[in-house]
Simulated assay, not measured.
Amino acid sequence: MSLILAFLFLSSCSQFEANEKQEQEPIIGQATMTAAFDGYLHFTDNCIIVRPEGEKGVQLAILGDQVISDLTENSLVYEGKKYTEGNYIRVGGGGVGDSAAFKKEHNLNECSDLEIFIPN
């Protein structure tokens, strides 16, 4: 029995040493999340909101990059089409992980604690 335990101990030590000597290269990659969000367009308290029926919705972040243009108090142009209050819209883009920090960094209005969606 002691011979078996000694063998197991030695083999486990040699496996540990072999794994310890291997150099691990870091895995480097970029991940981007793209999605589409659709719902009805609402303009409230200087916020642009896309809200599916019966749901909370998201706040669109307009960062000055011509994706959404001709922005007025109650209309916008997205992909060459004009949308106004209550129109159904499908917007491609991605969400933001930490909405509060993003809003502060980009000086965006607080819109009912909605998540941020950046159109692309």
Rank of each mutant, 00 (worst) to 15 (best):
Thr84Trp: 03
Asp113Gln: 15
Asn109Pro: 10
Ser2Ala: 08
Ile49Thr: 13
Lys56Ser: 07
Leu5Thr: 04
Gly29Val: 10
Asn19Gly: 07
Pro52His: 05
Asn74Asp: 15
Leu63Cys: 08
Ile48Val: 15
Leu108Trp: 11
Glu115Lys: 12
Met1Gly: 09
Ser99Tyr: 10
Glu23Cys: 03
Ala101Asn: 04
Gly54Asp: 14
Glu23Phe: 13
Tyr40Thr: 02
Phe117Ala: 06
Ile49Tyr: 10
Ala36Pro: 01
Ile28Cys: 00
Phe16Tyr: 15
Glu115Leu: 13
Ile116Tyr: 09
Ala18Asp: 11
Lys81Trp: 04
Lys21Arg: 07
Ser69His: 05
Ile118Asp: 05
Lys103Ile: 01
Thr34Met: 05
Asp98Glu: 11
Ile89Trp: 09
Ile89Asp: 07
Tyr40Ile: 03
Phe43Tyr: 09
Val50Leu: 08
Asn46Gly: 05
Cys111Glu: 08
Ala35Leu: 02
Gln59Val: 06
Glu25Met: 00
Gln15Glu: 05
Lys21Trp: 02
Leu8Ser: 11
Glu25Asp: 05
Asp70Glu: 15
Pro52Asn: 12
Glu73Pro: 02
Ile48Phe: 09
Gly29Trp: 01
Asp65Ile: 07
Ile118Phe: 06
Gly92Ile: 01
Leu41Ser: 06
Pro119Asn: 03
Glu17Cys: 11
Ala6Glu: 14
Gly80Leu: 04
Leu41Thr: 04
Val50Ala: 08
Ile62Gly: 04
Ser99Lys: 03
Tyr40Gln: 14
Lys21Ser: 03
Leu76Asn: 13
Gly97Phe: 14
Asp70Tyr: 06
Leu10Pro: 03
Val96Gln: 04
Ile48Ser: 06
Ile118Ser: 05
Gln22Val: 04
Ala36Met: 05
Ala100Thr: 12
Arg90Gln: 02
Ala61Asp: 06
Ser69Asn: 11
Ser14Phe: 14
Gln59Met: 15
Glu25Lys: 02
Leu8Phe: 15
Pro119Gly: 05
Asn46Val: 04
Gly94Tyr: 00
Gly29Asn: 01
Gly97His: 14
Thr32Ser: 13
Gly95Ala: 11
Ile118Arg: 10
Ile62Lys: 04
Ser11Lys: 10
Tyr88Arg: 09
Ile48Arg: 07
Lys81His: 08
Glu20Cys: 01
Gly29Lys: 03
Val67His: 11
Phe37Met: 07
Asn120Val: 04
Ser12Cys: 12
Val96Tyr: 07
Gly94Ala: 07
Leu5Ala: 10
Gln30Asn: 01
Ser12Met: 14
Ile28Asp: 01
Ile89Met: 07
Thr72Phe: 10
Met1Ala: 10
Gly29Tyr: 15
Glu79Asn: 08
Met33Arg: 00
Ala35Gln: 12
Ile116Ala: 08
Ser12Pro: 05
Ser12Asp: 10
Gly92Phe: 05
Gly29Glu: 09
Glu23Arg: 09
Asp98Gly: 04
